[in-house]
């Protein structure tokens, strides 16, 4: 294989690193395919298995580091084994959902009550979707796209490959374009998720949607949601991107219809 081909082979990974795409979490599954090597013959198979290692969020006692699945269990432990006035010198009470630290159990409870309505339930996550708080019971191996589509009926987020290759499932997590297929549902506790459904009020198109409409920047429409969410993130930081800046920003997306010229031109220049 030539050096040039090797560069092309890894270029997409470079895109992922450089394009503002957050590849979050550890996805379930196995990778079966060896690098294509530009179509040259390859005679051996490499198999890579990725195991799920993410655990249910734990509530940790700051006095003795014991872990508990629920806030209630932590509270019972603390009340039974530690005096209310015992000083915490090293550790803090930590919210397992967002990492926020507090000096007292009461402060942690107040934070959880305010931000996570069903705190303490194993496998239950609370987060914002398109500005609205939701609480969902999830299995620890469920991916974000599955949570959005099968638990919340937000079908606008499409899944093209499930392996981080196509970008169709891109949503914004705290404003950052993220492949939902590579993000676990349990990772999004306390975060703000924006999907394609957030872009309009149901009747009126947003300026970005209007431009996609005006230019008909779609073919089959399956990749469109992902492109538009990536475009929203780009335009938030760069309201008037050049064609090359757009190409860089959406380099983690593919369109198997071949409508990239139109899509890139639509995003360029902003709305």
């Amino acid at each position: 294989m030539s050096e040039k081909e090797e560069t092309k082979q890894i270029s997409r990974r470079q895109f992922l690193r450089n394009a503002g795409i957050v590849v979050g979490g550890t996805a379930v599954g196995s990778s079966f395919l060896l690098s294509a090597c530009g179509g040259e013959e390859v005679t051996k198979t490499v198999t890579k298995t990725v195991n799920v290692t993410t655990a249910t969020p734990k509530f940790v006692c700051p006095y003795d580091s014991q872990e508990f699945d629920t806030f209630a269990a932590l509270q019972a432990h603390v009340e039974a084994n530690h005096s209310a006035g015992d000083p915490i010198t090293v550790n803090k009470f930590v919210s397992p959902y967002d990492g926020a630290e507090f000096d007292t159990l009461e402060q942690l409870k107040a934070h959880l009550d305010a931000n996570f309505m069903s705190q303490g339930e194993p496998g239950v996550v609370s987060f914002l979707v398109n500005g609205k708080p939701v609480t969902v019971k999830v299995e620890d191996y469920w991916t974000l796209d599955f949570v959005l589509r099968d638990r919340l009926a937000l079908y606008g987020t499409k899944v093209g490959c499930g392996v981080g290759q196509c970008g169709a499932c891109t949503v914004l997590v705290d404003g950052v374009p993220t492949f939902a297929c590579l993000t676990l549902g349990i990772e999004i506790a306390g975060k703000s998720i924006e999907t394609i459904e957030s872009l309009s009020d149901g009747t009126n198109l947003s300026p970005l949607q209007q431009k996609f409409y005006d230019n008909e920047a779609f073919q089959c429409g399956f990749c469109t949601s992902g492109f538009m969410m990536a475009a929203k993130a780009l335009l938030a930081e760069n309201p008037n991107p050049t064609v090359d800046e757009v190409r860089e920003a959406v380099a983690g997306h593919i369109c198997t219809c071949g409508n990239l010229k139109n899509t890139v031109a639509t995003i360029a220049g902003g709305v």
Partner: peptide
């Protein structure tokens, strides 16, 4: 054992000629 789709070989917005 390999295809352009799964192995990061599919053409992207960086490959179009605009």
């Amino acid at each position: 054992i390999g295809s352009e789709y799964t192995d990061s070989m599919y053409f992207t917005p960086k490959d179009i000629i605009g």
